[in-house]
């Protein structure tokens, strides 16, 4: 469990617009085999850019200026994602690292059945696979996330939001990748469905042993599911530690602010909401005036 599966070193991403936006600044971290690493931060802090950068999915004007993301395979060889040719990159994506995208509910193709979208993965990455075997495998994958295999013939609009999300997760697992990156996989779902999906992810992680990078702005949720948590702000990781330490003994001021910003269900924290107006609560969201004004 202690060997790293991914090492990210001095990773920086700029958006080459005027003025240049430094979205990710000199980020380094290690992802251990089989662990769930939470990546927390507000909108616009660079957490999605970092994730997309790792698998080289960024399009111009985004540019990776420095740094590497090195993948350490289970079989004992290393791959630097920056050195791969476009052909190799295409083969390595989804096979080694797969992704559940933000708004995954809408990232299925609406005019193709779930079966065809599943089979597409195998046709691309496992061309030697027989048709019958492929069919079998697609059904198994769906059942693994708790969706009936008869649903393979369905089109995305015939499935509920939670089911579509499960289908996306099943697809991300299709090639048994060693890392799964999940970008806000449950934000559009209600709490009950969210809970089911999180249980599913934890169960599958225990079963298959993949590592997860879980990106969200919902810190209470991260505290529940992750082993370690990285808190990002303005493109930098300000604090990285295991969940328990981060919660009981936050070191960075910003982590403290984030921790104080959600109410507790059973405790007293949060009862100030109906107290006197506290302008400090909105200070994080103040209107900035200045150079950006048109």
């Amino acid at each position: 469990m202690s060997h790293p599966v991914l090492t990210v070193e001095n990773f920086s991403v700029d958006y080459l617009v005027d003025p240049v936006v430094h979205a990710v600044k000199d980020v380094s971290f290690e992802l251990k085999r089989g662990e769930v690493l939470g990546l927390a931060g507000e909108s616009g802090c660079g957490k999605s850019t970092l994730a997309y950068g790792i698998v080289r999915l960024l399009k111009p004007p985004a540019m990776i200026t420095t740094g590497h993301a090195v993948f350490h395979s289970r079989e004992g060889y290393d791959i630097d994602w920056g050195d791969l040719s476009p052909e190799d990159l295409r083969a390595a994506r989804w096979d080694k690292i797969s992704m559940v995208f933000q708004g995954a509910m809408n990232s299925l193709n609406p005019v193709i059945s779930v079966r065809d979208q599943f089979e597409d993965i195998f046709e691309t990455h496992r061309p030697e696979m027989k048709k019958k075997e492929r069919r079998e495998r697609c059904g198994d994958l769906l059942e693994r996330v708790g969706v009936d295999r008869a649903r393979l013939n369905a089109y995305p609009h015939e499935l509920s939001g939670g089911m579509r999300q499960r289908v996306m997760i099943a697809m991300a697992m299709a090639l048994e990748p060693q890392i799964m990156i999940m970008d806000e996989p449950t934000t559009a779902l209600d709490v009950v469905v969210q809970r089911e999906i999180l249980r599913e992810i934890t169960r599958l992680r225990d079963e298959l042993g993949f590592a997860v990078i879980f990106i969200t702005h919902d810190l209470p949720l991260l505290l529940e599911i992750s082993d370690r948590i990285a808190v990002m702000r303005h493109g930098e990781i300000v604090e990285l530690g295991n969940a328990l330490d981060l919660y009981t003994n936050p070191r960075h001021e910003y982590t403290r602010q984030l921790l104080a910003s959600f109410p507790s269900l059973t405790g007293d924290r949060g009862s100030f909401v109906r107290g006197a107006m506290d302008d400090r609560l909105l200070a994080l969201d103040a209107v900035s005036v200045g150079e950006e004004q048109s």
Partner: peptide, 15 residues
């Protein structure tokens, strides 16, 4: 909204 500003908005609403 981001978790970090939810309470601020609710606090404003209560006021």
């Amino acid at each position: 909204l981001d978790v970090s500003i939810r309470l601020g908005v609710l606090n404003l609403l209560a006021t």
